[in-house]
Design a protein around this nucleic acid. Structure first.
Length: 649
RNA sequence: GCCGACGUAGCUCAGUGGUAGAGCAACGGUUUCGUAAACCGUAGGUCGUGGGUUCAAAUCCCACCGUCGGCUCCA
């Protein structure tokens, strides 16, 4: 007999090898390495896959034993806690039917159908208590391959677990498994259909919190059963849980709707309608500053600015195909002289009209049209959200028309522009290449050409990117950029799409070197996305503390008493002459009071002026963060702040 | 659109069937001040809207509107 049949060789992460008896599990491996590791082991990373601790190993496997110190183990923890929650819910509400309970970032959720009961926040603490009990009972979590799938399906059906029955039916040929919750005598108390992996027991589950209840649909299909979803978070250590809850609190403090009230930024009005934003002077100033920056950047990169109408005859959207494929997001037609017109949902058809207004030569290309174009889209009432999800918004839209040969270079240029702008705002970002989806227009060659150009540009810039297989839109592959803000939250950022549809529909062509007509390649791109969403996001990114170049008021002059008003006015005039956004606060309040107000408004600089300063052409500078910076000459201060503004700090 | 919660003064909130309250902001006056809240006073609400129950409704019931948390989609 050769040794392979009785012994396994396992590779360890440090490169060493270890021999074990055939049939050994990851737990056996842990024990063979060290008792301490065995005690701490909660699962295993087998050939890069997270698995149960009691998984049987195969010869040649590379295995890393997972403990609570490994990030991968959070997946095991959260997934297992989801089951504990489901078990608790069914203990409290025996009529509850369980659906699915996946892990999500920082936690998990589980969907239930609970006939005759609507979950309330009070229920959450009851469920938490029950979960604690299940943890104390230290139930074993045992993987169980289903021997007779059809029998199990009818068992689920008899027990009323219709969702589980449906799932099992679908996965019947994938050797499905149940996870059994067993008491210390090995008696099964509860089970759930699940692929796993899980922790070895519930005693490991300690630091969790149920966060909110919400509605959802079975299989995310609104035609199917409406379910109740419980969201929860879970961590190994109570301190991690507390940190997470603190992060949530911090995020809440940054909420742009909340900051808007403190800083007087924007409003929406019942009389006007939901999802329509009114920009107050403070935020309008920030937006105008960003737009100036945007224009400057685009001008320098060879873009041309255009403006297009906000309404257009329906014909236009018939040609573009928006009416057919995007119709449910468009507002209904208005009658103008008997002709149906529509509010524009996208800027592209308009830009194409300009392109097509004359014959274009290959020598004209690339043509880069850019517009801060306001569009209107119907969004269901339930999805509207402050400035981040609205019904009327302004895109920083651009369409580039070029030859196939120019495509990669254009994309490269766009990525460069994106990098410059996002870095200016202090966002980190990551790129995703979204490839051809199942339903698509155009030929395979076109898709290959377009996707290839996107990928080549990413590679030539050495940009880290992930491929989102099938994530493209039906008419275009695209690069999506995700932004990471000051507290690490992800935001949808710039997008670049190579359109394979509109150039055909509108017959967008140029005359080539050969004197023939050729179809132009068209790229859509937005960097900021929409002014509404971008500015909403910026408010949260900066927590309302806008850098000086963006701050609505950059300087406030505070005369100490009435007799200093005249000098303060001179200082103010100097600042304004230097294009600094400055104001004076000469209210009849104490200096302390006015400083406090300026601090709370996050005004970068406060200039306090009294007798000493007036006598000396000076100002006493206070910075919102660094405090008292001492006295300096007015001209010196103007120079300092002008530099800061110019450097976009 | 669907599920749930919520809607009281400009803002933050108290008020669970019996005469609508507080703090801040606003306004008037006094104070003229040196780096995060001076003092006194005045005014401000059809309690989201409409209907119902009741002797009596901010409070209980119904409908609608809006907001918030999600579901789906996306800038």
């Amino acid at each position: 007999m050769s040794k392979v049949e009785t012994q396994l060789t396992i590779n360890l992460p440090d490169g060493s090898k270890r021999n074990l008896e055939c049939g050994a599990t990851a737990a056996d491996l842990a024990q063979s390495i060290a008792q301490g590791l065995y005690r701490k082991a909660v699962g295993a990373l087998i050939n890069g896959e997270i698995r149960d601790l009691f998984s049987v190993l195969s010869d040649g496997d590379t295995v890393k034993i997972l403990t609570a110190d490994d990030v991968e183990s959070l997946e095991l923890l959260r997934h297992s806690t989801a089951h504990v929650m489901a078990e608790a819910v069914q203990r409290i509400f025996p009529q509850a039917k369980i659906a699915i309970g996946p892990t999500i970032t920082d936690g998990f959720y589980y969907d239930f159908e609970i006939p005759g009961h609507t979950l309330s926040t009070e229920d959450l603490s009851k469920i938490e208590d029950e979960m604690k009990r299940i943890s104390q009972e230290n139930q074993r979590i045992v993987r169980h391959q289903i021997p007779d799938v059809d029998k199990q399906i009818s068992e689920f059906k008899n027990g009323g677990e219709k969702f589980k029955a449906e799932l099992l039916e679908e996965h019947k040929h994938e050797s499905p498994t149940l996870y059994l919750m067993q008491d210390k005598d090995g008696k099964t108390i509860w089970n759930d259909l699940c692929r796993g992996p899980h922790l070895p027991n519930t005693g490991l589950i300690k630091a969790f919190k149920l966060l909110k209840v919400s509605g959802s649909y079975w299989r995310a299909d609104e035609k199917r059963e409406q379910l109740q979803r419980i969201y929860a978070t879970c961590w190994w250590k109570t301190s991690d849980l507390e940190d997470y809850l603190k992060r949530l609190e911090e995020a809440e403090k940054r909420d742009h709707r909340k900051l808007s009230k403190q800083l007087d930024l924007f409003s929406v009005h019942d009389e006007v309608g939901p999802g329509l934003i009114f920009w107050h002077p403070n935020l309008a100033t920030i937006r105008a500053t960003i737009e100036d920056f945007w224009r400057d950047v685009h001008r320098k990169r060879g873009y041309q600015f255009v403006f297009t109408p906000h309404i257009a005859s329906e014909q236009l959207y018939e040609i573009s195909g928006h009416l057919q494929s995007y119709g449910e997001n468009m507002y209904s037609a208005m009658d103008i002289d008997g002709q149906p017109y529509r509010a524009k949902p996208m800027n592209c058809p308009g830009h194409i009209m300009i392109y097509r207004s004359r014959l274009r030569s290959y020598r004209d290309l690339p043509v880069r049209f850019a517009e801060l174009g306001t569009v209107y889209r119907y969004e269901r009432s339930g999805v509207l959200h402050g400035m981040l999800r609205v019904r009327g918004f302004t895109q920083d839209d651009s369409h580039i028309f070029c030859t196939p040969e120019q495509l990669e270079g254009e994309i490269n240029g766009i990525l460069d522009l994106i990098d410059f702008m996002m870095t200016t705002f202090g966002y980190k970002y990551k790129a995703y290449l979204a490839t051809r989806p199942e339903k698509y227009l155009g030929t395979d060659e076109e898709w290959a050409m377009a996707t290839g150009a996107l990928e080549a540009a990413l590679k030539s810039r050495n940009l880290d990117y992930e491929v989102d297989e099938g994530g493209g839109v039906f008419y275009a592959p695209k690069i999506d950029i995700k932004l990471y803000d000051a507290i690490g939250r992800e935001w949808q950022g710039p997008t670049v799409q190579v359109d394979l549809n509109l150039p055909k529909r509108f017959d967008v062509t140029y005359i080539g070197e050969d004197g023939e007509r050729h179809q132009a390649v068209m790229v859509h791109r937005a960097v900021l996305g929409s002014m509404e969403r971008f500015c909403g996001g910026l408010i949260e990114h900066y927590a309302g503390v806008f850098p000086t170049w963006l701050a609505p008021t950059q300087v406030i002059v505070l005369p100490i008493s009435d007799r200093h008003q005249e000098y303060a006015a001179q200082v103010l005039a100097k600042l304004r002459a230097a294009d600094v956004r400055a104001n004076m606060d000469d209210k009849s309040e104490t200096v302390n009071y006015r400083i406090r107000e300026a601090q709370m408004q996050q005004i970068p600089f406060m200039l306090i002026v009294g007798d000493k300063e007036a006598a000396d052409s000076a100002v006493a500078v206070r910075h919102r963060r660094d405090g008292d910076l001492g006295v300096q000459k007015v001209d010196d201060f103007v120079e300092l702040i002008t530099k800061e503004i110019k450097e976009r700090k």
